[in-house]
Amino acid sequence: MCGIVGFFAKSREPAELGRTVLGMLRALGCRGPDSAGVALFGAPHDGSFALRVKLGEGADLEGKARKLARFLEAEQRCSHFSSTAAYARFLAAGDRDLDRLASAIESLDRDFEVVSIGHRLEIIKQTGSPENLEKTYCVSEIRGTHGLGHTRLSTESRVDLSHSQPFWSHGFPDLAIVHNGHITNYHQLRRRYQQRGIRFYTENDSEVVAIYLAEQLRKGAGLHQALERMLHDLDGSYSCLAATEHQLGFVKDPFALKPLVMTETDDFVAVATEEIAIRSALPGTYSVREAQVKEVRVWPR
């Protein structure tokens, strides 16, 4: 199971992104009661990066937020620190070495994990329903141009915040994915990446999709090409959505084992596991169709 959604507003003006993605997710809550999450692309911060840090899985979050705040006070060019529930968020100047900053933060406390870094990307995820996500983080108030969402039914790894989706491609700003299915050559790929020193933060097979796409983009592939290469290199069942600062795309596996439907109008593109997600969040007259086997689509801004 699992439910995935993607929304892409064609207008450059920020839309009610959070409300739309949350509305789509609510309809897929029954496909994934374990956890819910969104990756939203909002307004940029004048060249700075927004960092979202997981503080922990529940205990003494306020103490951990203070610990991170103290660390950042001594850091250069970090500002706008805030914390809500399990997350801290702050901005870092665009010329900072983000990999070094992220690993310094993650070595402060074993619970800390940098969940997303981006000019515009913000990932918010936790265990529980889309309703809970809204209650804790007021997701519906966030404006932006495009985003992803996920409801999770765990079948192969633990249920906690880190194992929830969307996944950010650690070390690659503004790249996020959601995945429904199983990557059956996950262990082989994971070993290969680990031998090259790439760190896996979870035991969730979907994490490898984010790592794989980041690798392809680093090699110079466009998002469309990277998603097409996935059909060759990743085995198993997958309907997968990926988003960068300016693009939204999807790929469907070579056996069409997982559902994915899409619609495109003059105003927006919406992609989801089930049509009910699109219909319940987006009023209007439009037609919806199932993606075909091996289909890859990317919408650029």
């Binding site: 559902p259 439907v261 169709r289 199932e290």
Partner: peptide, 26 residues
């Protein structure tokens, strides 16, 4: 009148299934 998802008309024994749009896999 529109399109259908995967597995339309799977294992039917009789009758007619008419899809005016496209049919997906299987």
């Amino acid at each position: 009148r529109g399109s259908s998802g995967n597995g339309a008309a799977a294992a039917i024994r009789g009758g007619t299934v008419v899809i005016h749009g496209d049919a997906a896999a299987r």
